[in-house]
Design a protein around this nucleic acid. Structure first.
Lengths: 197, 197
DNA sequence: CTGAAAAAGTGCAACCACTACACTTTTTAA
DNA sequence: TTAAAAAGTGTAGTGGTTGCACTTTTTCAG
């Protein structure tokens, strides 16, 4: 590791480990999208990735986890949105973030299929929702810091939770941008009133 | 069925079915509270209730469901709170409902143990949360009717969802009444602002 | 009262996600 | 060079859950 800390050099071992992980994840994603979550067993995924079932579970804690592989990015993105919101209010900045993300996904049709798979498979919908709401604490802390209140302020926790839940309320609607306006409008007004007090 | 429709007369068969269901539920609850959810197998519950495992699963869809047996009451209670709120706003009526429920539970120490079991067992916490948020649609419809807007109004859905989620945000806090004030205050102001528009 | 249909319950075998274990192979680093 | 650390493997299991063929109980019409 010579030129700075940002680029972490990897030894052969870690490179191979990452490669194994990726081949498992790829096999799982492909098979799930092709035939559905419940129609594919872990054994078949392991075989396709050419590893043992034991190895598969050393890399992923559950069958559902095979499909949700990028978590930290989303969390830091949420925190960044609150931090770099400019002159917008926090709820409005989050609203813009969700709307922009939804539009960005609309580009790649591959993502639409992924989304439908998750929405239509109860186990995946639940798992995804649980992973998503795990960001509540980080988001609440960011909001608290920006607002200048204690990190465990209840209103910040509530706003964080509500904003995260808002996503699912909005995703079920036809006109998502309009829905986002109304739902986040509710949070916006409540939040603004609380701030003045 | 002679004296009115409210009391449904049951034949011997349905009475026995209900009795079987109850003995299973009772055995499960007792064993779970005594030794913990993960430390008791369905086989043992079935044996204790003197039924087969097959029968157990004919009455309950999953191991978790054995502990959550009273669903409809909660839902109708929520709807009733919105309907009979008097001159209070909808968010405030819901706030009172949750605070009162929490205080009512504080009376019976048996309920504290039940609550801790659920909170400390991830599988139960998740299942309970999922059951709880199933009431979103019914609550949203009640709110819409009271407000005089279409039944599928997004803001009503959002308020319903947020109020249901508020419960968990509040339950994690020490001073629940104070937390309820702040969290529902946020919804109250947002909701009021939207109503005037 | 009788006999058949409907429903509740049973025991067994199996499926599937997941884990513990004892083991081999590969990679690392002193 | 070599020994420890880490990745991977196969097997045998656990535990929740389901399908199936079956018996028992309850109902109800003739």
């Amino acid at each position: 590791m010579r030129y700075g800390d940002a680029v972490t050099e990897l030894g052969r071992r870690e490179r191979k480990k990452l490669q194994t992980r990726k081949s498992i994840s790829d096999a799982a994603t492909r098979l799930f999208l092709e035939r559905g979550f419940d129609e594919v067993g872990v054994k078949e995924i392991a075989d396709t990735a050419d590893v043992s079932v034991t190895t598969l579970f050393k890399h992923f804690p559950s069958k559902e986890a095979l499909l949700f592989d990028e978590d930290e990015e989303q969390e830091s993105a949420l925190v960044a949105v609150v931090r770099n919101r400019g002159d917008r209010s926090i709820p409005m900045a989050l609203r813009d973030h969700f709307v922009r993300a939804a539009q960005g996904h609309a580009d790649h049709p591959q993502f639409e299929i992924f989304q439908r798979l998750v929405l239509e498979t109860p186990a995946l919908r639940d798992y995804g929702h649980r992973m998503w709401t795990r960001h509540q604490d980080a988001l609440a802390r960011a909001i608290a810091e920006e607002t200048g209140v204690p990190a465990d302020d209840v209103r910040c926790a509530a706003l964080a939770r509500f904003a995260l839940e808002a996503r699912e309320v909005i995703f079920d609607r036809e006109d998502r941008e309009r829905a986002a306006d109304e739902v986040f409008g509710l949070l916006e007004h409540g939040w603004a009133a609380d701030q003045q007090a």
